[in-house]
Amino acid sequence: MRYFRKEKIIELFLQWTASLSIVIVICIFVFIFKEAVPFAKHPGLGELFSTRWMPTSPQKESFGLVPLVTGSFVVTVLAMLLTIPFGVGAAVYISELAAPVEREILKPFIEVLAGIPSVVIGFFGLMVLVPFVKSCFGLATGLTAFSGAVLLALMAIPTVTSISEDSLRSVPRSYKEASLALGASRLRTIWRVTVPAALPGIMAAVMLGTGRVIGETMAVMMVTGNAAIITFWPFDSVRTMTATIAAEMGEVAFGSDHYRALFCVGVVLLLATFGLNVAAQKVLSRYRMG
């Protein structure tokens, strides 16, 4: 039974590779936290709750995450307000109303949108959307939270649409037929039967889309103006957490307070997206069992 040994070795090897995913996740948490934790000693965690992000101020450096968090928050909420109607609407249309031929044409476009690199979308935003927003709303600059939100919505729509569509399509045909047989119209069936049945899946899609939006970097950095101020007005410039890391990490001294502060931003991002992901997986798995 020489083969038995060989088989066992192969299985152990494959198991070892599979465990690598766990190791990587642990490493990510360890290394982000490792670089962030010294910040708690100096200048202290309280510093993070300050309302000013002025990491290079000559008088007094200040590392308040509040403007960055609100910046990300405003952009994310706006982006989701745009994403949900378009993303879910398109999903309902593609899975329930479109003719087969139409579906075959629409889906590749959504896939193409998912494939466009964020820096290209950002560049497009800079060239087309920003001037448009500026002149359309009569602003001093088009580099606003709103511009960022529009681009983010474009990037989140494919995620939301494809996951929602999957869950709409997995609603048993018998549900729909039962409703139609009772004399309900097609649209009434969609609103009252299909969409509610697929709602957990759609919710998970929205959560995963939100995760994608919070974590998106390049496009946001290019069009939101990057002003670290606390505002909830869509047509102000804002600075998101991701953009802050990307823009400033290149210029900080290794081990400085500023460097640590950027890793603290990373921790917030990591926890936020991790939380959203876990919640989405929970919703999805419960849905699959039910």
């Binding site: 995913s21 766990i22 990587i24 991701t242 990591l270 991790f274 876990v278």
Partner: peptide
């Protein structure tokens, strides 16, 4: 772990790679 990896923002991967 795989689902978590899939959801981590790319900039955080950047920080991880840096660290």
């Amino acid at each position: 772990a795989i689902a978590t990896l899939a959801g981590i923002p790319s900039i955080v991967f950047g920080l991880f790679g840096l660290g």
